[in-house]
Design a protein around this nucleic acid. Structure first.
Lengths: 339, 339
DNA sequence: CTGTTAGCGCTTTCAT
DNA sequence: ATGAAAGCGCTAACAG
């Protein structure tokens, strides 16, 4: 059998309690015993059983992430892998596991959170918040600690790690306007998502009366479709800002197929930078929202929350715009029509 | 406090053992008691504590996935989210959780597997196999059930879910050769990875003496770099097959920047289809390796393995090539030089 | 600074 | 078909 704490204790000539405390640091242990215990554990190849630990200590040392994989979209860009990698870099230090569950419907999602609340996880992080999100009340009932991503205001005591998405949107619009663009369109994500909504709101606010907003769904096909719509308008936009890079890439391809030169005839930019953006023809201007850094912040925040440390919502590092060729140069003096 | 099995037992007027068996089905229970137990559980809102369950029953109902995130690449394409989504669609049915851990180095990786073996997970799936992979011996020592992805042959009793990557490679080469291409290059992934190696092997095998192989690292920057190298050769290739779409996309951009028309001057194709490929200019031919289906297969295989059902390795559905414009038409009669 | 001991919530023999 | 009771491996009082 695999060794237990009792084996280690016997080997080290101490009691189980002492071994336990050596590892938890919950009370001072003499350097000598500590060394003996470590040696014994090493020798026997002992690893604490996490279930026993959770059962006795009411701590699972795991945090949960439930993904509602809706229209097979949402996981298309590189936000997600980067984000979890950021979280892990913090979690790993503290030996905390990430438990992930992808669910298809509301019932499964509730079930997932219930099971996490009942001994699977000490807390969860909530992604892709909606304006009025049922999960908030649900988790409150479950008394499951949580940290939200990008919720504009705190909800029922849950804190959030918040990205200022108005700032890059405004900066980008200013940049384009300085170059003579007056018809700047925005292809958003689904506006029920807070992140998409906030970007769209910032957009409308900044461009004012000339707002040209199309609600997209973050997929390439849809990005293409909406780009086609926008470009066939009588007074078509000379610049389009997309809420993610997948739609932007598809938009750029559409424009080029239809004879437009980017950026001379049309300027393009998207949210969520990734390596591919820099390697397109032309390279695509995009907004780096620092998913890794935000993952780290969320993990830290959740750990603090679980520990019961009073915590306030925090702002993540401001997004930075990677200006590339797709927005270089001036707005076209002659707006070429698209066929 | 949250209700325990004892509360349910009391409420239903039975013993804990009976409640347990009602849920496990490990022994016959009269319809009446069964109903009473269910009613009691429902009334109290009882959810079995998974830690207690794992501790007593030696089953965690969780499976693990450890990702060694090496060069910040490897998670760039869409294989991964699709793959786990496929796994989850099987796991969810059986109430099995996926435990994921991203690690940075070998020590952390070993630690992760140890902790999984010691009560965190009933088994693991291994991705990104190397030709001689230390994990195999390691897991064997831990006695941790596992299923491998795409290992050419079974290892120490571990079975694998295997994709035939020679088939699409050969089909693609044939397709290109039929269109007159005689200089077909391949930009592979790191050849220490079995999947990259197998593709490269199939490539070399099929093109024979005219093989023009460059070992890449799956990143866009590197894809660009190697494309540049290949295109500056005196007798440059007229077609390039990349081992993932990220490198292919970067390659296409490079070629276009340097005045080549795709596919007239250069044909391009990549492994791992995703939505973006279809929405580039021109749309990129790519190989759909069905990550979702493979995720499902691996999950099923692992569940069987954990249950102790004798299991053989299985082949996943053959990859399908999505032929798009980037490989349409004939090989150029005049090979334009690149500057 | 260290030992002792009573559980954590469930599964699983062994009885009946 | 059900009950009783002995743990699973660990933590956290409570002693000293």
């Amino acid at each position: 059998m695999t060794p237990t704490i009792a084996d280690v204790a016997r080997e080290a000539g101490v009691t189980k309690g002492t071994v336990s405390h050596v590892y938890s640091g919950h009370r001072p242990i003499s350097t000598q015993t500590k060394a003996r215990v470590h040696a014994a554990a090493e020798k026997l190849g002992w690893v604490p059983n996490s279930n026993a630990r959770a059962l006795a200590g009411h701590r699972t040392n795991a945090i949960g992430l439930v993904l509602h994989r809706d229209p097979s979209a949402l996981v298309v860009d590189t936000f997600f892998p980067n984000f979890i990698s950021g979280m892990q870099s913090v979690l790993a230090e503290q030996q905390i596991m990430l438990i992930m569950q992808v669910v298809g419907d509301r019932a499964a999602e509730e079930q997932a959170y219930r099971s996490m609340a009942h001994g699977r996880a000490d807390g969860v992080v909530l992604l892709d918040m909606h304006l009025r999100d049922w999960r908030i009340g649900f988790l409150q009932k479950l008394k499951l600690p949580a940290v939200l991503m990008d919720m504009p205001q705190d909800q029922l005591g849950f804190t959030t790690v918040r990205l200022n998405s108005a700032q890059p949107m405004e900066q980008l619009i200013d940049y384009l306007q300085e170059r003579g663009h007056t018809r700047i369109a925005h292809v958003s994500g689904p506006l029920t998502y807070v992140h998409a909504y906030e970007r769209a709101k910032a957009y409308v606010h900044r461009v004012g009366g000339s707002a040209l907003l199309r609600e997209g769904d973050f997929t390439a096909g849809n990005g293409r479709h909406l780009t086609a719509q926008l470009l066939s308008m009588p007074d078509r936009p000379t610049a389009i800002i997309y809420s993610n890079n997948v739609m932007a890439i598809a938009g750029q391809a559409y424009a080029q197929e239809h004879g437009l030169v980017v950026p001379d005839d049309l300027a393009l930019a998207g949210f969520e930078d990734n390596e591919i953006c820099a390697h397109l023809n032309p390279p695509l201007t995009s907004i780096d929202t620092d998913p890794i850094g935000r993952g780290r912040l969320v993990a830290k925040q959740l750990i603090r929350t679980i520990a019961g440390i009073p915590t306030e919502s925090v702002a993540s590092r401001d997004a930075t715009i990677k200006f590339r060729e797709s927005t270089a140069g001036q707005a076209p003096s002659v707006v070429r029509e698209v066929h």
